[in-house]
Computed example of a mutant assay.
Amino acid sequence: MDNRKAIKLMLSNLSKDNFEHFCHELVNRKGKPQVLRNRVEGKSRSEITEVLLSTFDDTGAVQVAAELLNEMECNKEADQLLADTDVKCSEPGSSNNPRRKLSQRNVPAESRVSAESSIQQTSGCSQFGQSSFKECLQLS
């Protein structure tokens, strides 16, 4: 899928709260180039797509969007965006490993959280019990 269409589709499928959170994360991200608040505040999803594409190149816009989604713990949406665009993330440990926050490798077995409860604790992008990203979107 074309990167522009994939980003626009991803943004259109975010809830209002998650879209606002995405814009907040975009303005406050530490990487360069920075996105100024006045380019984001009050903008539509289509306009945010254009901000991403004009600030970063086509591939960079996808990478940054996936990074922000992962920061928001919208891991399925990040994975879907990357799959739709066939873009690989360039920063080691960032979007290439979207589940890094959920890793339980170094946690004692008695302290581990079950997969079901960790899904219930996400920020709202992933709905418990949905087997795929597209099924989740159909319920939104």
Rank of each mutant, 00 (worst) to 15 (best):
M72P: 06
H21N: 15
Q121W: 02
K8V: 07
K101N: 08
L139W: 01
N13A: 09
Q120Y: 06
Q34H: 12
E71Y: 06
A66M: 05
K16W: 15
E25Y: 09
L102N: 11
A115R: 11
I48V: 14
C89T: 01
K5F: 11
I119V: 15
N28D: 10
Q104T: 11
L139V: 07
F56H: 01
S90Q: 02
E67R: 01
S103I: 09
E71Q: 08
S54E: 15
S118F: 04
N18A: 12
V51L: 08
K101I: 03
N97T: 05
N106Y: 05
T122P: 07
R45W: 04
M10C: 03
E73V: 04
N75W: 07
F22T: 12
C125G: 15
T55N: 07
A6L: 06
S131P: 04
S46A: 11
V87R: 00
I7H: 00
V64P: 00
K32A: 08
P92F: 02
V27N: 04
L81I: 00
G124H: 04
R45N: 05
R45H: 05
F22E: 08
F22R: 08
K134T: 11
V87W: 00
L53Q: 05
Q127D: 13
M1V: 10
S95G: 15
Q138N: 13
R4K: 14
G124K: 06
E77V: 07
L102C: 06
L52H: 10
K43F: 09
Q127Y: 07
E20N: 06
Q130K: 13
D2S: 12
D58A: 06
G31M: 13
T59F: 01
R45L: 05
E91H: 01
A83N: 13
A6G: 12
S117I: 10
S131D: 12
L81V: 00
V107N: 06
D84G: 01
V87Y: 00
I119A: 13
F128V: 12
G129V: 10
C23Y: 12
A83I: 11
G31Q: 13
K16T: 15
C125D: 15
R29D: 15
L81K: 00
F19R: 11
N96P: 01
C125V: 13
L68I: 15
K32E: 11
N70E: 01
T49P: 03
L139C: 04
I119H: 07
R100L: 09
E73P: 03
I48F: 14
P108C: 13
P33R: 02
V62L: 00
I119D: 13
N97Y: 03
Q127A: 13
P92D: 02
R99G: 06
C125S: 15
R105L: 09
T85Y: 01
I119R: 12
M10Q: 02
L137Q: 11
T85K: 00
R100M: 06
Q138M: 14
A109W: 02
Q104M: 13
Q34C: 08
S131Y: 04
R99P: 00
L52A: 09
L68Y: 02
S12H: 14
M72E: 05
S94H: 09
A115L: 13
V87E: 00
P33A: 03
E41Y: 05
K134A: 11
V40C: 07
F22H: 07
Q127H: 14
Q138R: 15
L26N: 02
D84P: 02
A109I: 08
D86F: 01
R4T: 14
T122Q: 14
